[in-house]
């Protein structure tokens, strides 16, 4: 297996020119798939026999919650890559990803709280998954605050990478510890090993929404990384050429 692509990823210039045609199509595909999933889920999927129509919140809640976790996983991996290989793209990735993850965690929390009201009769329960998403939100905010308050770029890169890696190592411990606090939450909707309990007309739209949101975030991420690359590499001649000759 060739590792050339991995080393190429270390070059902001290579990434910029490679990703340029990808951002918009991926973003549009994501929007479309998300829209299909949401409309399907909201209009066509049958109501849940226990929860009635309030279960339709699942079509935004579950994708967003999945992304909140995946984003942190990606942050931790990027931090590790930076600490080991000093790859220039990794801190750019972290900088671009952290706000996305924070927004996802916040939406997951709020939509979960709103869903909890008709289902459990209360906005908030100290259950394992709610608490761990809340902690996840705090971790994201910590990374963002740290990056904003460090002026030195080299130090900010290192700091963000270290705190991401430490967070990733700690996340299983945090998860396990909050599981020990009593749990009220229903089991995970999607697992890789088991067939979902829901009928297909209920989980198919969810699948569309999940894939859509992943692509939506990927598109946004590429745009944010491109902006960050331009900001950091403004001294190099290719950026000058890129900015002055090509339009937006």
């Amino acid at each position: 297996m060739s590792w050339a692509w991995f080393h190429k990823l270390g070059s902001p210039k290579w990434f910029f020119s490679w990703s340029k045609p990808w951002a918009l199509p991926v973003f549009c595909f994501g929007c479309l798939s998300l829209l299909i999933g949401l409309v399907w889920g909201l209009v066509f999927a049958p109501a849940d026999y226990q929860q009635g129509n309030s279960f339709r919140i699942i079509y935004i809640h579950v994708p967003v919650a999945m992304l909140a976790q995946s984003c942190y996983l990606a942050l931790g991996v990027a931090g590790f890559v930076f600490l080991v290989w000093q790859m220039k793209m990794a801190p750019i990735f972290i900088k671009a990803m952290a706000p996305i993850g924070a927004v996802m965690a916040l939406i997951a929390l709020v939509s979960g709280a709103i869903w909890g009201k008709p289902t459990w009769g209360t906005w908030w329960v100290w259950d394992a998954r709610l608490t761990s998403v809340l902690v996840l939100f705090f971790l994201y905010m910590g990374i963002i605050a740290l990056q904003n308050s460090l002026d030195d770029q080299v130090l900010a890169n290192k700091a963000a990478a270290v705190i991401s890696v430490v967070g990733l190592i700690n996340l299983p411990v945090i998860k396990y510890s909050v599981v020990l606090l009593e749990t009220l939450h229903q089991g995970p909707t999607f697992t890789l090993t088991k067939k979902p309990d829901m009928p297909p007309e209920m989980w198919l739209p969810l699948l569309f929404a999940v894939i859509g949101l992943y692509c939506f975030v990927a598109g946004l991420l590429i745009w944010r990384m491109q902006s960050e690359i331009l900001k950091r590499e403004y001294r190099s001649s290719w950026v000058k050429q890129e900015v002055t000759e090509h339009g937006l």
């Binding site: 902690v135 740290l146 700690n170 020990l180």
Partner: peptide
């Protein structure tokens, strides 16, 4: 303040256990 914000989430498991 930043240290508090950054570190307190990591202390949760210790407090819980």
């Amino acid at each position: 303040m930043l240290v508090m914000l950054l570190i307190l989430p990591f202390y949760l498991p210790v407090i819980i256990f």
